[in-house]
Structure formats: C-alpha cells, structure tokens
Amino acid sequence: MAVLTAENVTFAYAETPVVDGVSLTVEAGAFLGLVGPNGSGKSTLLELLIGLRRPDSGTVELFGESATSFDDGERIGYVPQDVATANGEMPVTVAEAVRMGRYPHRWYGRFDDADRAAITDALDRVGIADLADRRVGRLSGGQRQRVFIARALAAGADLLALDEPTVGVDADSREAFYDLLHELNDEGLTIILIEHDIGVVTTHASEIACLNRELFFHGDPETFVETDALADAYGGSQHVIAHDH
C-alpha cells in the first residue's frame, strides 16, 4: 500500500523553480533517504509531500487523500530541521512536549488512560523516561531529537518525516539515533529522511531519492551508488560528503 504518492509535482518561490516535475511513490514500511546538494529543494519537497505546502501543479496524496486537505494530523510525525540546535528558552518539559503528540487526538478535554499510556510508552520506547521532567531546551541535540520522535510515537504516527535531524549532533548520538530509526522502521513505521551525509543515508535507508530540483534517481541504495545519478545531481563538480562504514 502506498503511504504517499506524488505526481508531477512542481513548486516555485516567486519566479525561482525549486521542485520540478517530481513523481514519487513511498510504500508503507519504506525507509526513504532524500539526498541532494544544498538548495536542491529537499526540504521544500518534504513539505510538499506532507501537505505543508501546496504544489503549483501536480498532486500529492497522503494515505489516499489530497495532502493539502489531509486532516489526520496524528498520522504524520514531523521532526523539524533545527530541532537539535535551536535555542529553546521556552520552559516546556520533555513530558509536556511528548504530550503534544496526543493533542491531534484531543485538542480539548481530559486525556484518558489510552492517551496517558501512549505517552508513557513513547517516552520508554526512545529511552527518555528519566528525562521527563527536564526542560527540552536544556537537553543535548541527540536527546532533543528523541523527544520529537517520542512525540510522533505518542501520536501513533504511521509516517515519520525528518528534515536533516542529525545536524549539530555528535557522532555517537547519531549512530544511536539511526539505530533507533532502524528499529522503528522494522516495527512498521514509514520513514522519510533528509540527510546531507550520503554515506550514512545509503547505509541505513532502504531506498534513496536523489533530488536537484528534478528527481535524478529513486531506487535502492546499492543501485544508487553504482549509477551516475549522484554526480549528475551534484553537477559533477560539487564536493560530496561520503563516509566509509
């Protein structure tokens, strides 16, 4: 079953085209790594895919509905780009942030036992139960990411969308974070991830989409590293970040 289908999606900021004729299908249970050079429209495409932006032309369907009018907000867990580095002076605790995952189920009224259980389970699942009463803004980058993942899990999200989640996170935390994503993906969560580190993403993702305004490649990581899609997308001359693992 397709979680997400984009057909011929085009989007421009004023006169500057950012995403051009992208067609893409994400099946349930996929772990899609979205790669491309800086300014290639990755973040914009992700926002189009989860209905945060309306395409100039083309269509996006989320769980079989038009993405822009999609209103089962709890099915999508979104982890924003600057989550690990943003300076959070707001006195929100980890528990309060994870409780927000239940808000789309219950914008008003008291939480019931199922809500409370979902929150406790989510905190346990990502291993931050002991941080529940700490301020989100005082945590390390790696811990903060887990808070946002826990929020998505508390919501009961079917799709996790992450925009460069490991910027500003140390190497050990990053490995642990990808291990967690792996486990969640194995448990059936569909993941779309923007990652600038090609080596990391080809190691962990089950499929790769390579974008530079247009879609240059969509397929499995093994094929991706063998083709010229990467060089084509990056224009051959740009420096590519890659690691050996």
């Binding site: 709890e74 867990g77 924003p80 927000m100």
Partner: peptide, 17 residues
Amino acid sequence: RPLLYTTFDEVGARAAG
C-alpha cells in the same frame, strides 16, 4: 493546547493538522 503547540513548534503544529 493549540496555542501551546503552535508556540512550541509552529511547523510541527501545522503538520499535526
């Protein structure tokens, strides 16, 4: 709840519908 969610994470709140 809507006010708190929007204040804490406006994009996340939009993604949450």
